[in-house]
Structure formats: structure tokens, C-alpha cells
């Protein structure tokens, strides 16, 4: 299944909340949706969940347009908004049962579905607790369970980790990984980029309603470095012995563009790809340098984000 966002625009009067966003991703992929506050993330997600319609453009979920056929599209989307369930006097199980009924899932299938989701989201132990008695982390799990109740192939999660404690975040991250392995396409927005970096396959970065970059992490990295810089591989080398001889040797090597000392390790830019980096390591070993650590230095999502955005808010 493929999710295609084509030239999406959403104007509120003269405000261009979303202005020409296009990207796509597939089943089994987790895509991060990143941007500063007011960039247009929630608006895009609401359109994807059929809660709003675009001024121009469209979103296709497995070929079904969210504008032309919102009822069909809604069955394919599990939307988790940034607000938590507000219902009082209703237990977790009753809440999920209500949504299962609302999606037209009939018994006995309904009972099976709810039980399996409660098990998956680890809600079995608290299924009889009322929603008002739950912590924020538990409510987030209930919210995710609700989004999963009709088994949608696409999950749209708006800031699911906001306000969660570290344990709840880790649990959520693991759940999302499992869901992606089960073939769900997941679009997730979050401000906690370090968290996102560990689970996403790709990202869409938007600012001021416009798309800055989109693609897999590798594609984005290459895009931000530029064509020429794409052939540079950054490595981190930590020797077990004295660092100075290794540093001098590196400076004399043909592929090493730049090297500098950074405490107990050396950071070097190698002209070439990962293959060249492997050859460099082999050469160092051949010269009997004892290397404790040799690793490719990847740019963090935060670095990418800071590089490509300008901090505009509308």
C-alpha cells in the first residue's frame, strides 16, 4: 500500500497553512513528520484523516482519495490526535468497545479484536479502570489502541510521545516498531527528534507550510550535504595507544581530506564512500595501529533539522 501526498495546499483566508507539500511512503515504513510549531503538520495530518479538506491537491491512500471518498479513506486511517480521550465514567474496555461498534465491527469479531488490541497495547490489566483514573501514558496507550481498533493499514500519529515519561516513550517506540513490522504505514509527528531518529525510515521536514525536504534518512542526508559533499564519509577513530602517531599518519593518507583531534579520538573526513572507509581501516591495521573504535559518524536528525530549517513560524 502506498500513501501519496500530491501538491497539498490548505489556505485559511490569506494564511497558507500548507503550501504545496508532496511526498509518499509505503507499508511497513515509519515516516517522521517534522517541523516547528505552526509549520502545518497537524493540518496535513487532519487532511490525511479526512477531518479537513485541502484547498488544492490531494492525498491518496492506496489509490483512494481522501477528498473524493472520505468514507472509504477513513476506514484505512487510524488517527491519533494530540488530545487525549476526555470521556468520563467509562472504562477502557467500554471505550474501545464503543469505537469498535462505531466502525461497524460486529460480535463475535468485536470481542476478539478488542481483546487482541488490549493485549498488544498492554491494557489487559487496566481494562476495567475508568478513563479519568488513568495516567497520561496509559491514556496515550488507550488512544493508540483506539486508532488500531479497525485494523487500519495507515496510522497517523500526531505528537504521540508528548508529555510521556521515559518508560512510556520506550514502550510506545517498541509498539510502533512492531506495528511497522506488521506492515502498517506510519506517519508520526514529534518534537523529540532523538526519539524519532531511532525508529523512522524516512522523514518529511516542513517549515512555514512548505516542504523543505522529504525522503529516506539516507536521501535526506545526501540532499543536505550536496552532490559534492555526498562523497565525503565522516569517521571517528579511537586508538588504544598514543593518539599523535595515528593523527600524523592519517594526515599523510591520500583519501583523508581532513582530520582533527577531539580529545581521545580523531574525527576525519574521507573522500569516498563506505568502501573507502573500510580500506582506510585495513590500511591502519596493516600499519599496526591498534584501533579500539572505528565508526562512521552519521548526522543526527536534529542536525539535519537545524540545517534545513530557518525557524520560521506563521
Amino acid at each position: 500500500m502506498r500513501i501519496e501526498v500530491t501538491n497539498l495546499r490548505r489556505y485559511f483566508g490569506r494564511t497558507k497553512a500548507v503550501n504545496g507539500i508532496s511526498f509518499s511512503f509505503d507499508s511497513g515504513q515509519i515516516f517522521g513528520f517534522i517541523g516547528p510549531n505552526g509549520a502545518g503538520k497537524t493540518t496535513t495530518m487532519r487532511i490525511m484523516a479526512t477531518l479537513d479538506e485541502p484547498t488544492y491537491g490531494n492525498i491518496y491512500i492506496n489509490g483512494i482519495s481522501v477528498t473524493d471518498d472520505p468514507e472509504k479513506a477513513r476506514r484505512l486511517v487510524g488517527y491519533m490526535p494530540d488530545n487525549l480521550p476526555t470521556h468520563r465514567d467509562i472504562s477502557v474496555h467500554e471505550y474501545l468497545d464503543f469505537f469498535a461498534r462505531a466502525y461497524g465491527i460486529h460480535d463475535p469479531q468485536r470481542t476478539e479484536v478488542i481483546e487482541s488490541i488490549e493485549e498488544f497495547t498492554n491494557l489487559l490489566g487496566i481494562r476495567d479502570k475508568t478513563l479519568k483514573a488513568l495516567s497520561k501514558g496509559m491514556k496515550q496507550r488507550v488512544s493508540l489502541a483506539r486508532a488500531l481498533v479497525h485494523d487500519p493499514p495507515l496510522l497517523v500519529l500526531d505528537e504521540p510521545a508528548a508529555g510521556l515519561d521515559p518508560r512510556a516513550r520506550v514502550e510506545l517506540r517498541e509498539l510502533l516498531k512492531v506495528l511497522a513490522q506488521r506492515g502498517k504505514a506510519i506517519l508520526i509527528s514529534s518534537h523529540i527528534l532523538t526519539e524519532l531518529a531511532e525508529i523512522i525510515d524516512g522523514a518529511v521536514i516542513i517549515e512555514h507550510g512548505q516542504m523543505v525536504t522529504a525522503g529516506t534518512i539516507q536521501e535526506i542526508l545526501q540532499g543536505t550535504k550536496g552532490a559534492e559533499a555526498a562523497t565525503i564519509t565522516k569517521v571517528l577513530i579511537r586508538p588504544i595507544d598514543d593518539i599523535e602517531p595515528l593523527y600524523r599518519a592519517l594526515l599523510e593518507m591520500p583519501h583523508v581530506e581532513e582530520a582533527h583531534l577531539a580529545g581521545d579520538h580523531i574525527e576525519a573526513d574521507i573522500a569516498g564512500d563506505e568502501e573507502t572507509a573500510c580500506e582506510l581501516l585495513a590500511e591502519l591495521v596493516r600499519r599496526e595501529f591498534r584501533i579500539l573504535e572505528f565508526k562512521q559518524h552519521r548526522a543526527h536528525l536534529e542536525e539535519i533539522f537545524m540545517n534545513v530549517t530557518k525557524g520560521h513560524v506563521q
Binding site: R46, A49, T50, L51, E71, R74, R75, Y79, P81, N83, P85, T86, H87, R88, F99, A102, Y103, G104
Partner: peptide, 16 residues
């Protein structure tokens, strides 16, 4: 309590 312009919890997320 369940419905407002900002809270879409109940009304539109499902096919109801």
C-alpha cells in the same frame, strides 16, 4: 464536554 471545534475525539474519526 465531548465535542468542540478543537476536540475531534468522537465525531469524525470513526465512520459514524
Amino acid at each position: 464536554g465531548e465535542w468542540s471545534d478543537s476536540n475531534t475525539d468522537l465525531m469524525f474519526i470513526t465512520t459514524i
